[in-house]
Amino acid sequence: MTQVSMTVNGQPATGEVEGRTLLVSFLRDQIGLTGTHVGCDTSQCGACVVHVDGKAVKSCTMLALEADGAEVSTIEGQANADGTLNVIQQAFQDHHGLQCGFCTPGMVMSAAALLKENPKPTEDEIRHYLEGNICRCTGYHNIVKAIMAASGQDVAVLAAE
């Protein structure tokens, strides 16, 4: 076992891990942040997306020890300081951007990464960016709409299906 230390949502987090411990296992099983989900465990679905040093990564396909010393953000760190939902989360609620909710943590984290790089994405750019996030309820349309709304753009241009 090796000691690993990182900052998670602004708080220091330390634990003992094996070489093979995945970042997602460390987050969920050792520090109890179960908002990050494991969907496919094969880096296809994106339910496990977190940010490591500001970059979106699939935490099921990164070793915990690779994040030693890193700044990690998860879905638990996304709400505003007063506990209210942030702009992206609120837009997902307002536009019904989730059904069962399993993919939502990854969708929100990917959306946050997208809007940081590209504050006013087009619909096509949003869809391209979400290629690595799968919603098995197939609620993509409202997810795209929520991200458009979160970026401050008019969603009326998207068909109301």
């Binding site: 997306v49 979106a56 990564v57 396909t61 997208l114 690595g132």
Partner: peptide, 9 residues
């Protein structure tokens, strides 16, 4: 290649 999260790693 892949998707944005894959491209970051």
């Amino acid at each position: 290649i892949g998707d944005p999260a894959v491209r970051n790693r």
